[in-house]
């Protein structure tokens, strides 16, 4: 489909002298499930954080439905409410219960009524299988459960795109499955997703597109089959070979 939700043009980001992202160009269409893979330090997470404006890009632009979101006079909060984000470290609000975590954004940002917000939050908590835990505080549940709540919290904002920043990297191996299951279900429902991940199986089976990043640039960009099965760049081949041996 040609309806581009996000377009990233010549994006660059530097921390001081350290150039983390260089001239990144790519776009996200409706329903795309894009996996971003690459070695640690290749700029994957920084790219995601730039897209959500948690980092301010040093160059280039990000267009949301054709409108630039960087630069002065842009309502960053409003844009962020349309682009959900799931973090490696969950970042659930520690002072709230599971249910409150999913309600607060709807009430305060989307200005929904409390009753409506509660109903919708329960719907999303059911979807991720965390409804029975709604009265628990984040410190009382496991990592996998926290991440599922974090996904429900992001979904509750009814975002157009969901960004996942290594959602399973901080989890015990036995909990990775439950989070990936939820993500797979979301992908099947047609959610537009942008996933930074080290889970090659997820990238291969679920994503419609795989982007390989190396040293701050997009090295290879194509369908999952092509990038993972028949990589054209030597860097991609090296990376994948190291992964298979590991």
């Amino acid at each position: 489909m040609e309806d581009k939700i996000l377009e990233i043009r010549h994006l660059s980001k530097a921390f001081g002298d350290h150039q983390v992202l260089r001239d990144i160009d790519f776009s996200v269409g409706k329903g795309d499930v894009t996996s971003i893979i690459g070695a640690s330090g290749s700029g994957k997470s920084t790219l995601l954080r730039c897209i959500n404006l948690l980092e301010t890009p040093t160059g280039g632009e990000i267009l949301y439905h054709g409108q630039p979101v960087t630069g002065p006079g842009v309502n960053a909060a409003k844009y962020r409410s349309r682009v959900g984000m799931v973090f490696q470290s969950f970042n659930l609000f520690n002072n709230m219960t599971v249910l409150e975590n999913c309600v607060v954004g709807q009430v305060k940002v989307l200005k929904k009524s409390k009753a409506q917000a509660l109903e919708d939050a329960m719907g999303y908590l059911n979807q991720v299988g965390m409804a029975p835990y709604r009265n628990a505080k984040p410190r009382q549940i496991s990592g996998g459960q926290k991440q599922r709540v974090a996904i429900a919290r992001a979904l509750a904002m009814e975002p157009e795109v969901l960004l996942f920043d290594e959602p399973t990297s901080a989890l015990d191996p036995e909990m990775v499955g439950e989070v990936l299951d939820v993500m797979k279900a979301l992908a099947r429902q047609g959610m537009t997703m942008l996933v930074v991940t080290h889970e090659m199986a997820f990238a291969r089976d679920v994503s419609t597109r795989v982007v390989f990043m190396n040293q701050g640039v997009i090295c290879e960009d194509g369908t999952a089959e092509q990038v993972l099965g028949d990589p054209r760049q030597p860097e991609t081949r090296d990376f994948l070979a190291r992964f298979r041996n590991a």
């Binding site: 959500n52 948690l54 909060a77 409003k78 844009y79 962020r80 409410s81 349309r82 959900g84 984000m85 973090f87 470290s89 969950f90 970042n91 659930l92 609000f93 520690n94 607060v104 954004g105 305060k108 940002v109 974090a150 919290r153 992001a154 904002m157």
Partner: peptide, 12 residues
């Protein structure tokens, strides 16, 4: 991370 979580759902 708490601030980032809040920003990410569009809180001011």
């Amino acid at each position: 991370g708490q601030t980032e979580g809040a920003k990410a759902i569009g809180m001011t």
